[in-house]
Simulated scan of single mutants.
Amino acid sequence: MIKEIIVVEGKSDTAAIHRAVEAETIETGGSAIGAAVLQRIMLAQQRRGVIILTDPDHAGERIRKIVAARVPGCKHAFIIQELAEHKGDIGIENASPEAIRDALANVKSEYQGAVSQLAFDDLIKAGLMLHPDAAARRLEVGKTLGIGYCNGKQFYKRCTIFQISREEFEAAVEQLDRRGLKDE
């Protein structure tokens, strides 16, 4: 049984979580999160802790940001789009039990007021920004670091709030450079 309560978007996500692990969930009901739901998430965070596991799409990222802003100290689990996609539909409900278990095993804690060991220049030098393959490179490095896919600015922010060390970052980029992009 997972101690923390997992925040998901809907009933089908809860069903997918239950197929993968024994855990309790709070469903946001989509991106229009009401005050009552946020209050339940706050109480869950105070009593047991919260893990946010939302869909790897724009709406899921919006929900993650809203919850994290209103409920400090949440943990984050990420599943990449390719592991949560079925016939063009992207969502936690499409992820395999193994992908869900992996995401929950690699949960990241957020540190408010954290200072980054990295600079935007590090992302540029690594080809994660201002590079023709920057998006694909961020996807691969994000997988390795367990912080999911996002744009350059959000990638930098996630590296900061999840306290990704320079060593971790450089090792992930080096791994990508050794293996190359999947489409190459």
Rank of each mutant, 00 (worst) to 15 (best):
35 A>D: 01
35 A>P: 00
38 L>Y: 02
38 L>S: 03
40 R>F: 01
41 I>L: 05
42 M>P: 01
42 M>E: 09
44 A>T: 00
45 Q>R: 10
46 Q>P: 02
48 R>S: 12
48 R>L: 05
49 G>H: 06
51 I>E: 01
51 I>M: 02
51 I>F: 01
54 T>M: 04
56 P>H: 06
57 D>Q: 03
57 D>F: 07
59 A>Y: 11
59 A>H: 14
59 A>L: 06
59 A>D: 15
60 G>R: 02
61 E>M: 00
62 R>C: 07
62 R>A: 13
63 I>C: 08
67 V>A: 11
68 A>L: 08
69 A>C: 11
71 V>C: 08
71 V>H: 12
72 P>V: 11
75 K>L: 12
75 K>Y: 06
76 H>G: 08
76 H>V: 04
77 A>G: 07
77 A>F: 13
78 F>K: 03
78 F>A: 11
81 Q>P: 14
82 E>Y: 09
82 E>L: 10
83 L>I: 07
83 L>S: 11
84 A>E: 07
85 E>S: 08
87 K>L: 12
90 I>S: 07
90 I>M: 03
91 G>H: 07
91 G>F: 05
91 G>K: 02
91 G>I: 00
92 I>C: 04
92 I>P: 02
94 N>T: 14
97 P>K: 00
98 E>C: 05
99 A>D: 13
100 I>A: 03
102 D>W: 12
102 D>V: 08
103 A>K: 04
105 A>H: 13
106 N>C: 10
107 V>G: 08
108 K>S: 09
110 E>T: 00
110 E>C: 03
110 E>N: 02
111 Y>K: 08
112 Q>P: 13
113 G>M: 03
113 G>T: 07
113 G>I: 05
114 A>C: 13
116 S>H: 03
117 Q>A: 15
117 Q>D: 12
118 L>Q: 08
118 L>N: 04
119 A>F: 07
119 A>G: 04
122 D>E: 07
123 L>T: 09
123 L>G: 09
124 I>T: 14
125 K>F: 07
126 A>L: 10
128 L>A: 13
130 L>Y: 14
130 L>G: 13
130 L>I: 14
131 H>C: 10
131 H>A: 12
132 P>F: 01
132 P>G: 09
133 D>C: 09
134 A>V: 13
138 R>D: 03
139 L>Q: 15
140 E>T: 15
141 V>A: 04
142 G>M: 11
144 T>G: 13
144 T>Q: 14
145 L>A: 05
146 G>S: 10
149 Y>T: 03
150 C>N: 15
151 N>L: 07
151 N>Q: 15
153 K>P: 11
153 K>V: 09
153 K>C: 08
154 Q>F: 00
154 Q>K: 00
155 F>Q: 05
155 F>N: 02
155 F>L: 00
156 Y>K: 14
157 K>P: 02
158 R>Y: 05
160 T>V: 00
161 I>W: 02
